[in-house]
């Protein structure tokens, strides 16, 4: 089920935020977000279209179009665009769970009321979809986390979470493409590189790509 009309708000003089969220994250809405993002790039004055989680930020030149008419155009795109799953690339990401580079593993299992092995097994059993890339270069917001593994973000973010950290934030999963602050929980580590600024394709993951985590080891 896809939401009817997105809530549209101003994000400064040169951007509009289309919010299609109705409570929890919805996969069908996200497919619509991707499709509208592609279509929006063809509209007069639009510079960038940035999918978020069930929402879309559209950056435009306010001297080439105006917020009012662009908002109307985006609303009709939202209504008329056919949502479709993207045939993305599938990636297998090997993860060393726990240990010094997965310090929240035991706490996570305890929070979920399961053994460490069972928690890890469930994390590695799911297929995740890259819903959006953002926050930092190449960071994937992953949907598809087993609801029993969800864990609200830390109340105080860590100032440094290492590149390669495999993390959980609320109902979302992620992987750190670089060392940066984060309020998500660290459950393991991968050596897969997600971002190379100098490469022709700087990011490994794209919206619509799917991911499985492979258990490379578990250290309680």
């Amino acid at each position: 089920m896809v939401a009817g009309t997105p809530h549209i708000s101003l994000a400064g003089s040169g951007a509009l935020l289309l919010d299609g969220a109705q409570g929890a994250f919805n996969d069908a809405t996200q497919e619509l977000v991707w499709a509208v993002a592609d279509a929006a790039l063809n509209l007069e004055g639009v510079r960038e279209a940035v999918p978020g989680m069930n929402n879309l930020l559209v950056v435009f030149d306010p001297l080439a179009t105006d917020a009012q008419s662009l908002g109307e155009q985006l609303k009709s795109l939202w209504a008329s665009t056919e949502a479709s799953a993207i045939a993305g690339t599938h990636h297998t990401i090997p993860v060393s769970y726990g240990g010094a580079r997965g310090e929240d593993l035991a706490g996570w299992a305890a929070h979920c009321g399961m053994s460490v092995d069972e928690t890890v097994r469930r994390h590695a059993a799911a297929t995740y979809t890259v819903a959006a890339i953002g926050a930092m270069p190449g960071f994937p917001y992953l949907s598809g986390l087993d609801p029993r593994l969800a864990w609200a973000r830390r109340s105080t973010p860590r100032l440094k979470v290492a590149e390669g950290a495999v993390i959980i934030g609320g109902a979302q999963a992620g992987i750190m493409p670089m060392t940066a602050p984060s309020g998500w929980h660290i459950i393991g580590h991968t050596d897969v590189t997600l971002f190379r600024a100098e490469a022709e394709l700087p990011v490994l993951l794209r919206p619509g790509d799917t991911i499985r985590f492979a258990i490379a080891g578990i250290e309680a």
Binding site: A11, N55, G134
Partner: peptide, 9 residues
């Protein structure tokens, strides 16, 4: 839910 933001937000 996480959403795009611009400088000045």
């Amino acid at each position: 839910l996480s959403h795009g933001i611009v400088p000045g937000t």
